[in-house]
Write a protein that binds this DNA or RNA. Structure first.
Length: 385
DNA sequence: TGCCATTCTGGTATACAGGT
DNA sequence: ACCTGTATACCAGAATGGCA
């Protein structure tokens, strides 16, 4: 910390102030338990009406897998449009009768959960009837469809997923059990609490920024090297594609502490996609973009252009595979690209040079290069996207 | 019959836990 | 040291169904 002049930290303060003025903090409106229960009841009443009219019962929900149903709002993220295409599953349709049955079954399970105030993981739900559901991913899909159908975040249905992300550094909070937790005391990072909504009293002593890291390996390495003691910051990793809890926690940290959030990803199509999921939100969770997207996040690297700028040798980079290239083209087609010219430029860059690199490639220069040179200089020079 | 949309399956990537 | 199973998320392509 002493190696950086005061102006360095002042700049971060200015940046933080600017972010707070640019991006709005979203307070989730509180929907009472009875309201959620009555929304489920309404769905069931509809089914009864359909049956008594002599029709095959059906359910409708907003389609979360089509890009046509999503729009990009700058400073917000990827949002489900107001009038999206609806998917209909019906008892009378051979292709969807199975899903219809499972959806009704899960609706009843969720209703009981909310009524009794119990919380279950998606895995718990699956193992109640493993033969019926046949696979975990089917339960995952349907639960998310139900949350979209009755317009509440999944966690409010008392259905959670075990957390995957880790957090470390100068951060203290009161966890859902009421215990005060100090992340700086844990040498290898603390698992993000499952009921992250109930995390409160988020505080820090000195942290000036949050650094989001794609991979666990890099996260651990930075911790081992004492990155958080040299730089007053908070480290977070989602271990690859981030789960919902990790993204909510980062959002909460920003809400409370009002400090800049930086992202460090691989310089490959997959790394860029993960950056997009953090920053703009994912397509399949676009109905809950306000509590998930991090539009204020700044991508500090590794940029595809860094491969040539830093002259990374060929033996630590790889040519793009066919799948990488198609992933690039895929990201190009997404609605947020036209608002972020430099992001598009970096994608072009990667396709043109036909090279990708992982964060670990920077260790070619020296083991400490990432912590002592790369990250500080990116922040100092405001070299982010 | 061919087209389009929807649904399902299997593949990608990340990482950890536990058994052989 | 490897393999299987667990978790997260996303996407490509096959299979299916409705409609002109």
């Amino acid at each position: 910390m002493n190696t950086f002049p005061k102006t360095f930290w002042d700049k971060l303060d200015d940046l933080a102030q600017n972010d707070v003025e640019t991006y709005s903090k979203f307070e989730q409106p509180d929907i009472p338990r009875d309201e959620i229960l009555s929304r489920i009841e309404d769905e069931v009443v509809d089914l009864v009406h359909q049956i008594s009219n002599g029709d095959s019962p059906w359910l409708q929900f907003r389609n979360r897998s089509s890009w046509k149903n999503a729009m990009y709002l700058p400073n917000v993220g990827l949002k489900l449009i107001e009038d999206p295409n609806l998917t209909t599953i019906s008892f009378g349709n051979e292709g969807s009768v199975n899903k219809f049955g499972l959806t009704v079954k899960l609706l009843s399970m969720i209703y009981k959960l909310i009524q009794s105030g119990q919380v279950a993981t998606k895995r718990d739900l699956y193992y109640e009837e493993p033969n019926l559901f046949s696979s975990q991913s089917i339960v995952d899909h349907i639960v998310d469809d139900i949350s979209c159908m009755i317009c509440v975040p999944r966690r409010w249905l008392n259905v959670v997923a075990t957390s995957k992300g880790l957090v470390a550094g100068d951060l203290q909070f009161v966890d859902p059990d009421g215990q005060t937790v100090d992340c700086s005391l844990n040498q290898s990072g603390l698992v993000v609490p499952v009921l992250v909504d109930n995390v409160s009293n988020i505080k820090t002593q000195h942290a000036k920024f949050v650094l989001v890291i794609e991979k666990d390996a890099t996260f651990q390495r930075l911790l081992d090297q004492g990155f958080t003691t040299n730089m007053p910051c908070i480290l977070v990793t989602g271990k690859g594609v981030p789960d919902v809890n990790t993204r909510i926690l980062i959002r909460k940290i920003w809400n409370e502490l009002e400090i800049p959030v930086f992202g460090l990803m691989d310089a490959d199509p997959h790394g860029i996609e993960i950056m997009c999921v953090y920053r703009f939100g994912s397509l399949s969770q676009s109905h809950d973009v306000h509590s998930l997207a991090l539009p204020f996040m700044k991508w500090i690297g590794v940029f595809p252009s860094d491969i040539t700028r830093l002259r990374l040798p060929d033996d630590v980079t790889l040519p793009l595979s066919d799948k990488d290239k198609s992933k690039c083209r895929d990201i190009f087609a997404r609605p947020y690209i036209e608002y972020h010219a430099r992001l598009a430029e970096e994608l072009h860059n990667m396709l043109r040079c036909d090279r990708k690199a992982e964060i670990q490639a920077l260790m070619r220069f020296s083991p400490n290069y990432l912590a002592q040179v790369f990250i500080p200089s990116k922040i100092k020079n405001a070299n982010w996207i």
